[in-house]
Computed example of a mutant assay.
Amino acid sequence: MTSHNPSTAHENAHAPSTFVFIHGFLDGSTAWDEVVADLGDRAADALRVDLPGMGKRAGEPGPHSLDRFAEDVATQVRALARPIVLVGQSMGAQIAELVAGQLDEQVRALVLLTPVPLAGTELPDEVMKTFHALGGNPGAQRELRRNFSTSLDEERLETLSRLGDGVEAASVGVFADMWNRGHALGAQHSRYKGPVLIVRGEADPFVTAEVISSAVAPRFDEPVIASVGNAGHWPHVEQPEAFARVLSEFLATVDRARSAAVDRQDWTRAFEQKSVTAFADAFAADIVLEASALAKPVIGAEQVTAVMAAASTIYEALAFTREATSGLRTYLEWEAQAFGGDKLFGVTILSKNERGEIAHAAIHHRPLGGALKFSAELGRRVHGKVDAAHFFSAA
């Protein structure tokens, strides 16, 4: 069981994170407008970054580098002083990973959309001439976007292309070389160890499935890989609703897993403190506690708090060994020692209501002899506070 209450210091651990969106090569913060709108309230406080020299910061002088861009974003993120979800597209994915590696604990999840590998693409000079030639050439920029996309209508194409039009011609080649050469950290396993989602457009001719599987995904611990249909290199512009849906589904999974992890930490802390107040804030007013050490359920926050606080004083040692979550339900497997060395084992199942309060708890002890002994001792310790009919009596 966990100690969780939206009004406590643990509120931030359960609260939704703030999105930080980082655009790609020759784009700007407004490229995320439709995705933010489709995410609704979840992205109401989103930070949409404009990188130096692009978007609303077009013309901002260099020197430009991936490290400078990463530090620029990291500075803005630190100022938020709250947990974030980093979302980077194309070259922005390189920057997002660098920021995640710096800030680590502040980053709840990293999302790489049509990501250029952090190590770069290492395209030959002859190919890179095409990207260098985009500077000061609006027609060429529009043609490249058409070739790298599948469903950019003329309005969206023009909106996206105008962002590139504003970039100084001399900077275009500099930015292209940045993502092509990549960063030295791309040669090793990623420094960021948290949840990662990698998304590509199914028809993207630039960041292909082979690029993802060979140069991006292997650098992370168990990344989730997804794709957006009928989209090329800009799924967030071509299919914003579909990308928002993929993003939301991933974050729902991340939030559930994190909630379970926080539950485990808080519940462990409550047992370590062995106090009534450590348990009290966790429970709904009408919580129901069932257990193999109870003859019948205990109902109500005051009664359940008394039982759990007393139970914690019986254990001489307690370790949670496994955990899992499914929706609002958390499963915690544990092993304990009591009564001068007796071993007890069990599973705790916590079900929360929509307010995040524990509404139902089921605690299963084994072996039977230990459970009966535990029940009798628990009844002795809560005598006068909880009806004795709930507990086993050897008499």
Rank of each mutant, 00 (worst) to 15 (best):
R191M: 02
R181W: 04
V73T: 06
A46G: 02
N12I: 11
A217N: 05
S259F: 11
D342H: 05
H183E: 07
A226R: 07
A231R: 01
M54K: 07
E71T: 13
E323K: 11
I198D: 03
R162P: 00
L185G: 02
R42F: 14
E272N: 13
N353K: 15
P124N: 04
A361M: 15
K343E: 12
A242C: 08
V87Y: 09
E290G: 09
S259I: 11
A395K: 01
M128Y: 05
F271P: 05
I363H: 10
E290V: 06
D342L: 06
L157M: 14
R245K: 13
K193N: 01
R162Q: 01
F148M: 15
G384R: 02
L251F: 10
V107G: 08
P240C: 03
F243P: 03
R322Y: 10
G59Q: 10
G166L: 05
G28P: 11
R245P: 03
A260N: 08
E377L: 07
R245I: 01
D204Y: 06
L197K: 02
L332C: 06
V254A: 01
P117D: 03
P16Y: 10
F206Q: 04
W32Y: 12
L197T: 02
S326K: 01
F392C: 04
L39F: 14
V228F: 05
V228H: 05
E335L: 07
D104L: 00
Q106P: 02
I212Y: 05
G24H: 00
D165N: 03
E335H: 13
L66C: 08
